[in-house]
């Protein structure tokens, strides 16, 4: 695994890992700024939409507290205004938010202690929170940083909604194009996630999934793309497992021990250990290299 050292060496180093609780909270609030650039204007849009749809003003903050999930809330306002049956509302929420099912795999909830804090962190696990924490190197993560980011993000969202309903149509035409900041944020975080783990197969499989999804099911592209992506990753896992099994068979015939432990233990066990160990070492090494560049 190569790390892309060249472009960063001359560049100013990104912040070192925050140490004190205060620094961690400050880092979390800083993390939230780039997300807030998209979240706050979207919150205002939600507030305006609620008023335009003829719904009571309290519905905007109530919605953003009941379920903290931006895109779904914007969608719900239209459905509620049209008095859509509750079953259809439920189905929409299920499909639009289904992607969150996959976030549990890599979201660092284990860092958060205490039932209340854990519950809030899960409740506030929006795309931006997942994206920011998943693209952060392990050493940079901490519970205060994560929670501060999530609380700040919800403050932007609820605050934006309140501004929207308060100012209403008195607001001059909102600046066009601010919603692009969400796309910019995800682009940047993809680059960061790629740097902490240069996993080209995952990028290729994700690219194929999203392309297919955009062609086949444009209205629910995100939903389809994630399902396809996970299916392809499962296939990749099966392929690796099969290849490992085949490799095990061939080393059995050649019986050429590569390490001392290979001789000592049974073949299956040692093969597995060597693979795990070498994989772990490569990962540690590449991560260490990346973080050295950071420091």
């Amino acid at each position: 695994m190569q790390t892309d050292i060249s472009p960063q060496i001359a560049a100013p180093a990104p912040s070192p890992a925050p140490v004190t609780r205060r620094q961690q909270i400050a880092a979390g609030v800083r993390d939230s700024f780039s997300a807030g650039l998209g979240i706050f204007p979207l919150g205002i849009a939600l507030g305006l939409l609620v008023l335009q749809a003829g719904l009571p003003a309290w519905f905007a903050p109530a919605l953003s507290v009941a379920a903290f999930a931006g895109s779904m809330e914007l969608l719900l306002v239209g459905m509620v205004a049209a008095a859509t049956p509750l079953a259809a509302v439920a189905l929409t929420v299920l499909v639009v938010n289904f992607r969150h099912v996959f976030y549990a795999f890599s979201f660092p909830l284990h860092l958060v202690r205490g039932r209340l804090a854990k519950t809030y962190s899960v409740y506030a696990m929006i795309d931006e929170a997942y994206a920011v924490s998943a693209s952060l190197p392990e050493s940079q993560r901490s519970a205060p940083r994560l929670l501060a980011m999530q609380i700040a993000s919800q403050a932007y969202w609820v605050g934006g909604g309140l501004v929207g309903v308060a100012v209403g149509s008195a607001l001059p035409a909102p600046v066009k194009g601010l919603e692009f900041s969400l796309c910019a944020l995800f682009t940047v975080l993809t680059l960061d996630a790629f740097r902490s783990r240069e996993d080209i197969p995952s990028v290729v499989l994700a690219g194929a999934s999203v392309t297919l999804a955009l062609v086949l099911t444009p209205p629910i592209a995100l939903f389809t793309a994630l399902l396809l992506f996970v299916a392809l990753l499962l296939a990749r896992h099966a392929l690796i497992a099969r290849r490992a099994a085949a490799g095990r068979g061939s080393t059995g015939r050649h019986a050429a021990p590569r390490t001392a432990s290979h001789v000592a233990t049974t073949e299956t066990a040692s093969r597995a250990t060597t693979e795990t160990a070498s994989r772990a070492m490569t990962e540690t090494a590449s991560r260490a290299a990346t973080e050295t560049v950071d420091a």
């Binding site: 976030y103 997942y130 994206a131 693209s135 995800f186 783990r197 995952s202 990028v203 499989l205 690219g207």
Partner: peptide
């Protein structure tokens, strides 16, 4: 494997 792919998918959508 998931984060980089999910983030890429979010970026594209």
């Amino acid at each position: 494997w998931m984060p980089v792919g999910i983030l890429g998918i979010l970026a594209v959508t």
